[in-house]
Amino acid sequence: MANSIRMRANLEGDVTTVRALISHPMETGMMKNKKTGDLIPAHFIQEVVCEHNGNTVLTSLWGPAISTNPYLSFRFSGAKKGDTLKMSWVDNKGESDSAEATVA
C-alpha cells in the first residue's frame, strides 16, 4: 500500500510546525450507501501518535467527526534541522500506517 501519510515539518526559530495529510475514508457509520440503502460501517482513525527522538510530542484521539482524508497540524519546540519525526495512526478496524519526515 502506498503510504497514506504526507507529512512536513518546518523549523522556524525554535518552534517546529508539523503539517500532515492522511488518506483515510473516515466513515462515521451513519451514512447510507445510496444504491443499496445499507449503512456503511464505521471506519475511522482513532489515534495518531507523533514522535520526535523517541518522545511522544502529540497523541491525537479522534472520533468519526474528523473529516475524510484528515488534516492535522501542530507545533512543538526542541527539534533541530535534520531530526526525524515519526507519525503513525491506528483505526477502529485495527489497520495502521506510519511515516517519517525530516525537520527542514
Binding site: 518522545n55 510530542v57 497523541t59 484521539l61 467527526a65 484528515p70
Partner: peptide, 28 residues
C-alpha cells in the same frame, strides 16, 4: 461540537515540548 450526535470530535494529548496549537478539519 455541541450539536453533533456525539459532541466529542477530537482530543489532543500534548507531550513534552508541544505548543498550545492544533489545527484540523472536522464534520458538522
Amino acid at each position: 461540537t455541541e450539536k453533533n450526535a456525539s459532541p466529542l470530535t477530537a482530543s489532543f494529548v500534548l507531550g513534552a515540548g508541544a505548543e498550545g496549537f492544533v489545527a484540523t478539519r472536522m464534520k458538522m
